[in-house]
């Protein structure tokens, strides 16, 4: 007889792994990637490949030569970070900036804290914000979505709908006039607008969201909390004065709200553990995003909002606990 295995219970396991979860998110991002390639052409392909390859390479190098660990790139988390980083930058960004951004994302955002599972901030957003602050000109020149024929670095650039809105409003123009320079809501929905590579196609991102919910990769609480908060907050402003504030749907469909809420804010490592905590976290992101958009200097604020709320996650985890079975009864007695 073979030697019997002995271990404490349970003896069966759900058919899942970290690797599978990571690749499920990657799969969920593919529709959006397809839309981006359709709208931005070669640039999208080059940016994606550069970001993914450099993220994986940096993770391997750091684990192999600095941390002296067994490299764990096969778990897919570096691929996911690279993909999300690419989704967050314009498609005409020079390769060297992307490589620096990847190094910051993986090196500072993730490995310096001890690798997957230990990073307090979303690595891709750390990379993006670093690039945004260090290379503001390159990071805010958005190629116009002209289609697959679009060229890489010398693409025609234009402003994002949010940028147009922000500039117009600060120049004192009414919303109704600005709206004529902006694609219709329907066009915004399927992604015909300028912006970062992966943030434009709300439709594709929602398809990915549905896939992730179906595969039980994420829970719906965080995105729903963010969407509801943004709708409520911008809705109130819009009802007060529709001429100086854009409508809620416009806010939802433009900028990185979809990408951020569905894929960045739900990052396991940097989001709260309890359902109550998820609501607080999502509402926080929504409020900060709108505050930056409406009152701040930047036209878009979701990446900052997510990073700020990331910082609160340990605090939320400490004070917001799930309701324990039998707890209330005890208090009542």
């Amino acid at each position: 007889m073979n030697k019997l295995f002995i271990s404490p219970s349970p003896h069966v396991y759900e058919d899942t792994s970290v690797k599978r979860l990571m690749f499920d998110v990657v799969i969920a991002l593919l529709p959006a990637l397809a839309f981006s390639i359709y709208f931005f052409g070669m640039g999208a392909i080059i940016v994606t490949l550069t970001a993914v390859i450099s993220c994986v390479a940096f993770e391997w190098l750091i684990q192999k030569f600095i941390l002296k660990q067994e490299p764990s790139i096969s778990d897919g988390s570096a691929i996911l970070t690279g993909l999300l980083l690419a989704f967050n930058i314009p498609t005409n960004l020079p390769i060297w900036i992307i490589i620096i951004g990847s190094l910051v994302a993986i090196g500072i955002g993730k490995m310096s804290f001890g690798g997957l599972g230990n990073n307090p901030f979303n690595p891709a957003l750390v990379g993006r914000v670093f690039m945004l602050i260090s290379f503001p000109v390159q990071m805010t020149s958005w190629p116009v979505p002209t289609g697959f024929s679009n060229r890489y670095t010398d693409a025609v650039t234009g402003a994002t709908p949010l940028g147009v809105m922000k500039e117009g409003l600060s120049a004192g123009k009414p919303v109704s006039e600005l709206m004529s320079n902006i694609p219709s809501h329907m066009e915004l929905f399927y992604g015909h607008m300028g912006g970062s590579m992966g943030e434009i196609a709300a439709l594709a991102l929602l398809i990915g969201f549905a896939y992730m919910l179906f595969r039980k990769v994420i829970k719906c609480h965080i995105p729903v909390a963010i969407f509801t908060t943004i709708i409520a907050f911008t809705g109130i402003l819009w009802l007060i004065n529709p001429e100086s504030n854009a409508d809620p749907l416009f806010h939802l469909l433009t900028g990185g709200v979809m990408l951020g809420a569905i894929y960045m804010a739900t990052d396991y490592v940097t989001s709260p553990m309890s359902v109550k905590g998820m609501w607080i976290y999502g509402i926080g992101i929504g409020v900060i995003t709108v505050a930056i958009r409406v009152f701040g200097a930047y036209p878009e604020g979701i990446s900052f909002a997510i990073l700020i709320m990331n910082a609160f996650v340990p605090l939320i985890n400490m004070y917001v606990k799930p309701k324990r079975f039998g707890e209330e009864v005890k208090d009542g007695q």
């Binding site: 030697k3 019997l4 295995f5 002995i6 271990s7 404490p8």
Partner: peptide
Amino acid sequence: ERVNSYDGA
């Protein structure tokens, strides 16, 4: 001699 193999934590 090892007569079984422990597979827990």
